[in-house]
């Protein structure tokens, strides 16, 4: 068997080595080099790119990325848990309701972000309706604000929260809830003292998935945000395009990867539970 297995693994192993591991290695090397006179990279080897990271401007962008990711994750837990609970208790139409969560999630991320541009812009639908109803005197710009970015992130990644929580709720031993009811617990009481504590693995897995996706977000802050909502993904992209400072961009992207890896540690240990 071993020979056939080697042939079977070879194409993927080669592709991953050439197009993933080697490129990451190049980024590691570039992060230790100097920006060339025309935007390329050149010697000498240096730690300077990492030394530049603690600059207040970059720290602000990093802090903002962490903050937006944290707020979006919290909102996703609050909005996603009840939806997962609904799914777990939805009976015979469960597959339909599940599909209704999954389908928009897999349809074009770009189009879903664009839909919010269409709704939020100054001449967009929400402003038009609010003015027409007389709630607003005149339209105001909701697009290009932190509000729009966080809304876009929550909208984009909510299913990442719902699905793992649903997976834990579905496997929850129902007799525990019945036992609690027999012993006199009211529904809300058993929700807070039994269901929520027991669905912690799902909430944790969902939170990590949403948090790392938000942290690495590029398209959402790019389209829904403005100059004051730049996140670390936009900063990385900017270093590789207009700023043409590849060594610093490489250092930034390695920092982003490091944060993502650290966050994933607790979930990786739970991978055998089948949540990812």
């Amino acid at each position: 068997m071993t020979r056939l297995r080697a042939w079977f693994l070879a194409p993927s192993a080669l592709l991953l080595a050439a197009l993933f591991l080697i490129p990451l290695g190049i980024i590691c090397a570039y992060s230790l080099m100097t920006r060339g006179p025309y935007g390329g990279v050149s010697g000498p080897w240096t730690w300077d790119n990492y030394a530049r990271l603690p600059d207040p401007l970059y720290l602000l962008i990093l802090w903002r990325s962490l903050l937006y990711a944290a707020i979006s994750t919290a909102l996703c837990v609050l909005m996603g848990f009840p939806l997962a609970l609904f799914l777990a208790r939805s009976g015979h139409r469960r597959n339909l309701y599940l599909a209704l969560v999954i389908v928009p999630f897999w349809t074009s991320f770009l189009v879903r972000t664009y839909a919010w541009m269409f709704l939020l812009r100054e001449t967009g639908l929400i402003n038009s309706v609010l003015v027409w109803l007389g709630i607003l005197e005149q339209p105001f710009e909701m697009l290009y604000t932190p509000f729009a970015v966080i809304l876009g992130l929550v909208y984009g990644y909510l299913p990442f929260m719902v699905l793992p929580i649903y997976a834990t709720l579905e496997r929850l031993d129902r007799s525990l809830i019945e036992a609690a009811a027999d012993l006199g617990a009211r529904p809300l009481e058993s929700l807070f003292r039994i269901v929520i504590p027991l669905s912690r693995p799902g909430i944790l897995a969902g939170s990590v998935l949403v948090f790392i996706s938000c942290l690495g977000a590029y398209l959402t802050p790019d389209l829904l945000g403005g100059g004051k909502t730049i996140m670390i993904g936009n900063l990385v992209q900017n270093q590789f395009t207009s700023a043409r400072d590849w060594p610093f961009g490489s250092a930034l992207s390695l920092l982003l990867m490091l944060v993502v890896m650290l966050l994933l540690m607790p979930v990786l240990r739970r991978r055998q539970e089948g949540l990812l």
Partner: peptide, 18 residues
């Protein structure tokens, strides 16, 4: 697994550099 969790923007710039 690593390729699955690496942010898209990082994969993009790494491939560009490569």
């Amino acid at each position: 697994y690593l390729s699955l969790v690496t942010p898209e923007i990082v994969i993009g710039i790494a491939l560009l550099a490569f």
